[in-house]
Design a protein around this nucleic acid. Structure first.
Length: 868
RNA sequence: GCCGAUGUGGCGGAAUGGCAGACGCAACGGACUUAAAAUCCGUUGACCCGAAAGGGUCGUGCGGGUUCGAGUCCCGCCAUCGGCACCA
């Protein structure tokens, strides 16, 4: 098939234009103050989620989003915007390191090669990136600032009163004032407990095969997201980022963003805010209090037992001698289980009675304390009050172990064994008769008044486990002295990883950096932190770096940041950021949440001008293989862009990516669909070009500088309107359909007005830039009006006057059903229209023996005659 | 179980509450050709009546509703996909 003659010479002109764009720096966007910068133009920042340069190369799924943003970037330039459209590489990460271990080659070598490959592929598709702004997260000039931001996290605390991060120095001052006699040791401990980057001994997800810990988000079904290796929980000392401090802002500040509702929902879900109360249950015979969190304080009278998580610190204290053996045995059984096994057993509740009793503060009832693994130490307080009458899990547990069930909510209708909805309180003394929401409020007031508890909010979101025991990542700008950590000074950055020959995991929990003896040992007995940052770090702020990728004095140039991240004037104060951000749904939670978190820190500390990084977000859908299955090597249904470019040209690839269907939908690839758009482009080519006997392409003799007739004008203006509006709304598929209608129309014309072709080439330019440039250039030899490059032309405007027809077809309905069509003069008066419609033979037939009850008239569109 | 999408011809998909199926693919017929490919022109939701011209009925996952009029709005189901999942 590849031997077949091409329908137009894209193999020649596509590389030519790519070279010219490169040579002329056509798509370079100067910063404010730089030569060539035009301050009169508005700005537009359109960004792709930058890729991890894998060994596999790009596949057609990546390109869908990239094509969409490229069309927008080119369109906005033609509309007179200064457009920032950059690309870079998220190049730290596990796959490169795993590959390096396998091949014995340094990860930087494979990374550089993969980047070359990716870049080559992108250039062959003709994307209009400003390559002078290319960034790479593994470049010391870049990760210096990743480390710098980490130091900002390390040296900040979250002030709940300001609801914002503040420098830790301010806290230190305040502490010195409030506790002047505190020891140095105590003060340090206090500060360390407040930092947004802190060290904690916590149960973590340890993956022995990868030799690293993973964030909760990187563990799927008890296995590592990368590689699918088993993950076990074990306590380790780790760096954590206090993202939970920002939980409320991450939730609230989502509101002003132009994101799909579904993505906002995913984030809200992940943050998982629950309103309720904490309640203190005294332990019978001890001084201790068991604090539980509940969203249903109104059911406190129905609490007939208390459950602690097996790891709960109070378990040892409440357990009686007699119950110690089974409790110890149960805890051991749970501890050795992985999370996967623990959820596997979810169907059948397990647990053990501790022998201890708690006192229900509302009625002084003595209720048993159990431990069970259905209560998680990591959520809420790690303890619950069990209300089996109104909670499914508690009900199952109580049924199994024969614990008393008391019903305290009257359901609105039929009663089930366990009712979890809202109703009216009963068997609850001072709550009796109150609807659930009021009962909740009243109970919380009571708890607060009596000192037994208080209003409380809990989140599912956990602090972000931020260290990895790997080589190929950003080293922490942290040193250790006498068992205490210290942040480095800004002048010590970047911390460059040592040139290790052997960066394999050590086989223990010791990170590979431990092998670099000289590197880790510093003067004065200090040593370097051995962990590295997770892959997400570099992508948390790369969109800022693009504004001034070569700035050496600051993570981003201040003026450039203010310019490119500025909000639209119609928007509220402080909003703004990237004007359009496009990427896959797989990043809906992790990357987007992490990046928002870092951005808010930088905002709080006055380093950036907007509260949110990405004003508008669009998630492109997945592209499936021809067989409707997810594309994968093992299924053999992967489509490689290189093959398509070779066979049909980059423009065909771009156009097909967009013609498949709506950007956000999941849709299957189809090779004959590619042929379809290829044929369309060939028709565009032949609209202007003619092949002679020798097989040479010349300007078509049908082209002429003539005025357009009425119908042609109407099509041209309808196309300008449709394409402009559809590009704005990212409905690229229908924009292309309209251009196809245009081409079908003019292909049929014996004489083709050059002006129409000229307009088409401009409209088509963002979609098929090579073909558009080539024809533009060729036409310049025969006709006036083709100066410069097509991509530098002003986007055309449409005129409604050409869209309106003098005569139009009116639909005649009888009782809402289509019965006839009539052609009438435009803007015919309603009375006249009704008269004509009633006169229609079809209407006459239908209306025989019937009375006309009503006539609905939609001017210039339809008449509906309603009969008895 | 909860949250969020989606459901329209043989296929991908179009349709500010107003002609359902734009555009493309596939299929079929024709022109060009010695022939084929490519190209160009045309037909193509299903069913029914008619020799034909033409005409009719049904039709947007299912069941209701609102409306002169519903693919579109409302209520209740079903199915598929994605996310979360013992989160108190």
């Amino acid at each position: 098939m590849s031997e077949r003659r091409k329908q137009f010479p894209f193999l020649q002109f596509e590389p030519k234009w790519q070279r010219l764009w490169q040579e002329r720096q056509t798509f370079h966007a100067p910063n404010p103050g730089e030569p060539g910068f035009d301050p009169t133009k508005p700005k537009f920042y359109v960004l792709d989620m930058f890729p991890y340069p894998s060994g596999e190369g790009l596949h057609v799924g990546h390109l869908e989003g990239y094509t969409a943003t490229d069309i927008i970037a080119r369109y906005k330039r033609m509309k007179g915007f200064n457009v920032l459209h950059p690309m870079g590489w998220d190049a730290f990460g596990l796959p490169a390191e795993q590959f390096a271990i396998k091949t014995g080659q340094h990860p930087s070598v494979a990374t550089a090669r993969n980047i070359e490959r990716f870049k080559g592929q992108l250039k062959k598709i003709g994307f209009s990136y400003d390559w002078l702004r290319e960034i790479n997260t593994t470049d010391p000039g870049y990760y210096k600032w990743t480390q710098w931001i980490f130091l900002k996290l390390y040296n900040s605390w979250f002030d709940p009163e300001a609801n914002a991060a503040r420098p830790i120095a301010e806290l230190l001052e305040k502490r010195n004032r409030d506790y002047p006699h505190e020891s140095e040791e105590e003060r340090l401990e206090f500060l360390n407990g407040q930092r947004l980057a802190y060290v904690a001994e916590a149960p973590v997800n340890w993956c022995p095969d990868l030799g690293t810990v993973l964030a909760n988000e990187e563990v799927v079904d008890g296995k590592s997201e990368i590689g699918g290796f088993p993950v076990v929980r074990r306590p380790m000392r780790q760096w954590m980022l206090r993202i939970t401090a920002y939980a409320d802002r991450l939730l609230e500040e989502l509101e002003g963003l132009d994101w799909q509702e579904s993505i906002k929902a995913l984030q809200r879900n992940w943050i998982g805010r629950s309103e309720g109360a904490t309640v203190n249950f005294p332990v019978d015979g001890l001084e201790d209090l068991i604090t539980v969190f509940t969203t249903r304080p109104d059911t406190l009278f129905g609490a007939t037992y208390v459950v602690l998580a097996p790891e709960h610190p109070l378990v040892d204290r409440v357990t009686t001698k007699a119950q110690t053996p089974p409790v110890v045995a149960y805890r051991e059984r749970i501890a050795t289980k992985s999370d996967l096994e623990r959820t596997d057993l979810a169907k059948e509740k397990t647990g053990v009675f501790t022998g201890g009793f708690a006192i229900n503060p509302v009625n002084q009832e003595r209720i048993p304390i159990w431990i069970a693994d259905y209560v998680l130490m990591s959520y809420g307080t790690g303890a619950i009050m069990a209300v089996p009458g109104h909670d499914e899990r508690d009900f199952q547990f109580a049924e199994k172990f024969g614990i008393y069930i008391r019903y305290v909510v009257e359901p609105p209708r039929s009663t089930e064994a366990c009712f979890t909805g809202e109703g009216v309180a009963k068997n609850s003394r001072f709550l009796d008769g109150l609807p659930t929401p009021e009962a909740k409020r009243k109970m919380i007031d009571w708890l607060e008044k009596e000192g037994h508890g208080k209003r409380s909010i809990t989140y599912k979101l956990r602090d972000w486990l931020f260290s990895r025991q790997r080589y190929w990542g950003e080293p922490f700008p942290i040193i250790w002295r006498d068992g205490k950590h210290q942040g480095l000074r800004e002048s010590d950055l970047p911390v460059v990883p040592p040139p290790l020959d052997d960066y394999r995991p050590t086989g223990t929990i010791e990170p590979p950096l431990a092998k670099a003896r000289e590197w880790i040992t510093l003067s004065g007995g200090a040593t370097r932190e051995l962990n590295t940052m997770p892959q997400w770090a570099g992508s948390c702020w790369y969109f800022l770096r693009f504004a001034s990728p070569h700035e050496t004095n600051r993570f981003v140039n201040e003026t450039a940041e203010r310019y490119w991240m500025a909000g639209n004037e119609s928007r509220k104060h402080r909003s703004g950021g990237v004007d359009l951000y496009v990427g896959g749904t797989e990043h809906a939670v992790l990357h987007l949440l992490y990046a928002r978190f870092w951005h808010k820190l930088l905002y709080d500390l006055n380093y950036v001008s907007t509260i949110e990084p990405f004003q508008r977000l669009v998630n492109q859908g997945m592209i499936l293989g021809q067989d409707n299955q997810k594309m994968s090597k093992s299924r053999g249904n992967v489509v490689t862009p290189d093959d398509i470019v070779e066979e049909y040209g980059a423009d065909s690839l771009r156009l097909y990516e967009m013609f498949l269907g709506p950007l956000e939908a999941t849709k299957p690839w189809s090779m004959s669909g590619v042929e379809g758009v290829y044929r369309f482009l060939a028709r565009v080519w032949r609209l202007a070009m003619d092949e002679d006997q020798e097989g040479e392409w010349n300007l078509s003799p049908a082209l002429a500088s003539v005025d357009l007739n009425r119908k042609q004008l109407s099509i041209v203006h309808a196309t300008i309107k449709k394409v402009s509006e559809d590009v704005e709304s990212l409905s690229f598929n229908t924009a292309i359909a309209q251009m196809m209608i245009f081409v079908n129309e003019f292909t049929a014309a014996e004489i083709r007005p050059v002006e129409a072709v000229r307009t088409l080439l401009i409209l088509l330019n963002p979609f098929a830039p090579h073909l558009s440039e080539e024809l533009w250039w060729r036409l310049s030899f025969g006709f006036a009006g083709f100066e410069g490059m097509a991509c530098e032309q002003r986007w055309p405007e449409w005129d409604d006057q050409f869209l309106a027809k003098d005569d139009l077809e009116i639909v005649i309905q009888v009782n809402g059903k289509l019965r006839d069509k009539i052609t009438v003069r435009r803007d015919l008066e309603n009375e006249e229209l009704q008269r004509v419609a009633l006169a229609s033979v079809k209407v006459q037939e239908a209306a025989r023996d019937k009375r006309v009850r009503k006539v609905i008239i939609v001017p210039n569109k339809l008449v509906n005659i309603v009969l008895e």
